[in-house]
C-alpha cells in the first residue's frame, strides 16, 4: 500500500466521519441539557431529502440551510413534546424515525422519481481538489465544530447553565434558570447540526437522496455520544475511528484475496469495534443525572 492509497482511505474516512461527528456533537449539546434524542436517524433522513429540494431551488448553500431548518423544526417538535408536555423521549424519537421513513419515501414518489432523486450538478457543493480525491468543504466545518462546542460547554456561562440543567434541573430551577427553555434551545441547536449533517449527505457527499440514505448513521452517532462521554472532542475521534473502520472494511472486501473471509464478517467490523469501544469506555463515563427524564416541578 503506497502513500496515495493511504490518502484515499483517509479521504473516504473523512467523508464518512462528517455526518456522524456533526450529529454526535449536536446530540452531546442536547444530552448535556438532559434530552436524549434517538430520532436523529429520522432527522438525517428528512433533512437529506429537504436539502435536495433546497439545492434544486437555490443552490448548495440554500440546500444546506434548508436541511438545517428541517433539523431545527423536527427538534423543536421533539423538544416541545419532551419539555413542556413532559413526553417520553424514547417514544418520540422512535416516532420521528418511523415518520421520516414514510415521509421521504412518499416525497420521492411525489417528485416523480420514486426511489431516489439526484441533486443537479449546479446544486452540488463545490469540492476541494487534492492529489488523492476531492474533499468536501464541510469536512473543515466538522473539524472546527467540536472544538467550538467544547469551548462553549466548558468555558462559557451558557455552557455551565446547560450542564446545570441536565445535572440537576431542580437546582437550576431554584437558581432562576428556565429549565424547559434551555433544554428546548439546546436540543433545537443539536437538531440544526443533525440537519446540516443530513443535507451534507445528499448535497455534498453523495449527490442524491434515496429512501434510506441515512443508513443507520443516526444510531452510530448515538453510540459515538456514549463513547465520547459528552466530550465533543472525543466525539470527533469516535466518528473518525468509525469512519476509518468502515473504509478499511470496504477496502478489504474489494480485494480478491479476501474471498477467504466472507464479506459479511468484514462488514461487521465497524459495529463490533463500536460495541467494544463503548463497553470499554463506559466505566469512566458519567452522564447527566436527569438525562432522558422530563423535568416536573414538584
Amino acid at each position: 500500500m503506497d502513500i496515495s492509497q493511504i490518502g484515499s482511505i483517509l479521504i473516504i474516512t473523512l467523508h464518512a466521519m462528517v455526518p456522524i461527528c456533526l450529529t454526535a456533537v449536536g446530540e452531546i449539546i442536547g444530552e448535556t441539557a438532559g434530552l436524549f434524542n434517538i430520532g436523529l436517524e429520522g432527522i438525517l433522513l428528512t433533512s437529506a431529502f429537504t436539502g435536495v429540494l433546497g439545492a434544486k431551488a437555490g443552490g448548495a448553500v440554500v440546500g444546506l440551510l434548508v436541511g438545517m431548518g428541517t433539523g431545527a423544526i423536527i427538534s423543536l417538535i421533539f423538544s416541545v413534546i419532551n419539555t413542556y408536555w413532559k413526553g417520553n423521549q424514547m417514544i418520540t424519537g422512535i416516532g420521528i424515525n418511523l415518520f421520516a421513513l414514510g415521509f421521504v419515501a412518499f416525497g420521492l414518489i411525489v417528485l416523480g422519481s420514486p426511489g431516489f432523486h439526484p441533486v443537479p450538478p449546479e446544486g452540488r457543493l463545490v469540492a476541494i481538489r487534492t492529489p488523492w480525491g476531492r474533499l468536501s468543504p464541510i469536512i473543515f466545518v466538522t473539524l472546527i465544530v467540536p472544538f467550538v462546542a467544547h469551548w462553549f460547554l466548558n468555558r462559557t456561562r451558557a455552557g455551565l447553565i446547560l450542564k446545570a440543567t441536565g445535572e440537576s434541573p431542580e437546582a437550576a430551577d431554584v437558581a432562576g434558570i428556565r429549565v424547559n427553555l434551555v433544554r428546548l434551545l439546546a436540543t433545537t441547536f443539536g437538531g440544526i447540526l443533525a440537519g446540516l449533517a443530513g443535507a451534507y449527505i445528499s448535497v455534498s457527499w453523495i449527490g442524491s437522496v434515496t429512501k434510506q440514505i441515512s443508513a443507520g448513521r443516526g444510531f452510530i452517532s448515538l453510540a459515538t455520544v456514549v463513547f465520547s462521554g459528552l466530550n465533543p472532542l472525543l466525539a470527533l475521534l469516535g466518528a473518525f475511528v468509525f469512519g476509518l473502520f468502515e473504509s478499511i472494511a470496504i477496502w478489504i472486501r474489494n480485494l480478491p484475496a479476501a474471498r477467504m473471509i466472507p464479506w459479511q464478517f468484514v462488514a461487521m467490523i465497524p459495529y463490533v469495534v463500536t460495541l467494544l469501544v463503548v463497553s470499554g469506555a463506559i466505566g469512566r463515563v458519567r452522564f447527566p443525572k436527569s438525562l432522558g427524564k422530563p423535568y416536573i416541578r414538584e
Binding site: 496515495s4 492509497q5 473516504i12 453523495i206 442524491s208 434515496t210 440514505i213 443508513a215 470496504i250 474489494n254
Partner: peptide, 20 residues
C-alpha cells in the same frame, strides 16, 4: 454489498476500488 439501495455504499466502494 448486500444492498440494492445504499447508494453511499456504492460510492465509497467504487472510490476504494479506483484507489486500489
Amino acid at each position: 454489498t448486500g444492498s440494492f439501495d445504499n447508494i453511499a455504499l456504492g460510492k465509497s466502494t467504487t472510490e476504494a476500488q479506483l484507489a486500489q
